[in-house]
């Protein structure tokens, strides 16, 4: 599925992945790929600007660490991020329910 199809939902997906625990960028995109059964196969680079945007918005926080011979940035959810995730889940439940109801019409 192309990145355009996920527009508006990527932030919620990133927050949901980080709700399971801190992760670095590559682990986040891998979690989205494996969690969607390969349906959401975005260019890996896509995740980094999106994570930066969420960090600027205060929904996640990033920290640098050294390991395996290179520097790594790990992200974790903030309290504001947890609240935003609740909102994303609520909006998605409402949206997907409405789309399913209309799509089922006439079947």
């Amino acid at each position: 599925m192309r990145a355009e199809a996920l527009k508006g939902h990527l932030d919620g997906l990133l927050l949901a992945v980080l709700a399971s625990g801190p992760a670095h960028g590559y682990a986040v995109i891998e979690a989205i790929r494996s969690g969607s059964g390969g349906t959401f196969d975005l260019p890996t680079g896509t995740v980094y600007p999106a994570l930066h945007r969420l960090e600027v918005a205060g929904l996640i926080t990033g920290s640098w660490s050294d390991g395996e011979g290179r520097r790594r940035r790990t992200y974790r959810l903030t309290a504001a991020g947890r609240r935003a995730l609740v909102e994303h889940r609520s909006v998605w439940t409402q949206f997907s329910g409405a789309v399913s109801a209309i799509m089922a019409t006439g079947t």
Binding site: H24, G25, Y26, A27, T44, G45, Y48, R70, R71, R72, R73
Partner: peptide, 14 residues
């Protein structure tokens, strides 16, 4: 620098 460092880490993971 921090952007390239982070993307470099991701590329090496890949």
């Amino acid at each position: 620098r921090p952007i390239l460092t982070e993307v470099a880490d991701g590329l090496h993971c890949a």
